[in-house]
Design a protein around this nucleic acid. Sequence first.
DNA 1: ACTTTTTGCGCAATCGGTTGCGTAAATATC
DNA 2: GATATTTACGCAACCGATTGCGCAAAAAGT
Lengths: 347, 347
Amino acid sequence: MSEDREVTIYDIARYLNVSAATVSRGLKNNPMISKNTRKKITEAAKTLGYQSNTFASSLRSRHTHTLGVLVPRLNSHFMSSVLAGMENAANRHGYNLIIAQSLEDVEKEKRNAATMFNKRVDGLLISLSYNTTDIHHLEPFFKRKIPVVFFDRIYPHEESTSVGINNYEAAYNITRHLAEQGCKRIMHLGGNLLRNVYQERLNGYRQALRDHHLPVSKKLYLTSTLSEQAGTEAARYILDLPPGERPDAVFSANDTAAVYCMLALKAAGLRIPDDIAFAGFNNDPISRVIEPNLTTMDYSGDSIGNTAATYLINHLKGISNLYTTDAITLRAEMVIRASSLKKKLRE
Amino acid sequence: MSEDREVTIYDIARYLNVSAATVSRGLKNNPMISKNTRKKITEAAKTLGYQSNTFASSLRSRHTHTLGVLVPRLNSHFMSSVLAGMENAANRHGYNLIIAQSLEDVEKEKRNAATMFNKRVDGLLISLSYNTTDIHHLEPFFKRKIPVVFFDRIYPHEESTSVGINNYEAAYNITRHLAEQGCKRIMHLGGNLLRNVYQERLNGYRQALRDHHLPVSKKLYLTSTLSEQAGTEAARYILDLPPGERPDAVFSANDTAAVYCMLALKAAGLRIPDDIAFAGFNNDPISRVIEPNLTTMDYSGDSIGNTAATYLINHLKGISNLYTTDAITLRAEMVIRASSLKKKLRE
DNA sequence: ACTTTTTGCGCAATCGGTTGCGTAAATATC
DNA sequence: GATATTTACGCAACCGATTGCGCAAAAAGT
């Protein structure tokens, strides 16, 4: 009952007068063992209260059924959805997640990558920190052929796959939407260009402006961390602009900055969308609470997480091959809400 | 360089002409080994590209430096803050987190608890699912003296500690605040009473009503999952009430339900707070975006996570003893915002 | 009845560190 | 200079499961 020793396969073996090898095989339902013996083993395991020791197993079999997940921050709506999706997929396939956050710091990212490696995760799911410039720290994984899947904030690498959305197209479409609403001076709140997602959104935004013969001005482009504070500061920036140079629309690379910018502008008396239209990115819960509701890009963190994890697991199981796939692009959908619908087009 | 074998302590041992035991001790900075040898070992480890194998180590040393975290859902603002806090504390102390979600399902919670046990986590941090009625599934942990810390949704157990806030008091205070604003018919949107947090909030709410000689009516109490939809439905319920029986204030056990209830009521033409005041719980980001801003209970998920993890780790390190502490109660602070400030008291 | 194939299981090495105990050399003690 | 103590390290037995190989018994084939 409450012994202090662990119950091992040897105990089961002794109990049933078979060898530990047989028990080991029996527990894994190896067809090499007769159905009868297998049943006896499973029963004995239950009555003895056997609990398999995962690392004894891992040590020998050289896989851990564990995936490493390395993210910039855990506490954003998007990221927690991603994690939820990953956990779901992993759990469904009998994998576990060991999760760490870099807090946007390369050094911590490196340390975390090292621990993950030492823990011998079967695969790595990673979204890069703000200021990661190279991925030398992932070399150990590549060397040992431990599959790496990038998601959201990706880094092109020939031995790994990335999962995300078409940020260029999404940004292009959302900017075009603003243009079609009659906006002439469309501003962009962007993030760190080291990260593909922000670079691509900027590119899409710019191209859409050019295609609609709208000004691509440095005054209409701000780069920041896209935090609440950054949103508020962007509002300040806009209000300080000479009236003639003020944007009549803002496309923010995330919802947080958009919403806090809106709040500040509203407080200053600007009307949204009539004085200034708004569009965000992420479809964060706050985008459905702010008034007017925020037009945004909806792409499910859940499916990104799910897809990335499932894909990684399929590779591990040999069902698919990660090395032949460069990128998986998920659908992103524009959700048009009141914040970008100019009156003249409404009626 | 790119060999396929792993670099082990034996390789280092051979390289330096010492024994593997010495290498093992040297790598852990065991003072039994001379400083000189230790330095040589660390250097050799670096040049050979040695990476420790965590489970070989865990197998023998019987601890994994890994904490299991079992939560209902990953993707809520509160929970992701908790996780961020835990990850921080764990990382700081050299521990890792393996995280799983029960999706509010006891069965999944049981399965997850079992895997965590099999992975031999050094400790368990758990917040119970919606419909967990007992904690038999945690017995293996108690039996093997693996420390368990409950957080937020706790379960009294003499061999484990819980970390949370004083829900009774918080609910009492927030209800009193509404009463002091002159609200006479205060409604409560509550959660499943199986979970202490909701039971205690209900108790606090009721006691405050009694103390202020306000009606404690079943009509003014709704229990739900506190989801967005539940919030909207609560609004429907309120609107369907005969005008004389309508509440003039709502205290919701979370912000999500409060906000979606507010949105629906506003859409129906009610004015907040004049027709109906509102208070929530959690200080979720949406509470600062909804108009009017929502009065709520602020308690930091981050500190709950941090405290719970730190406490567990200190126990593991022998710094403190978990078995002597029953509960750790963190501070919760009422944040009064416009949603609960009645005009007459404003001026 | 005799060979061939299949089935069911055991032997023993192995995965990569950890650690109690033993011991030789170096240093201290008197 | 002999004994006591300390320092620094090696030996070898683990930790608990996995797995290639071998072998006997049972089943199938002729």
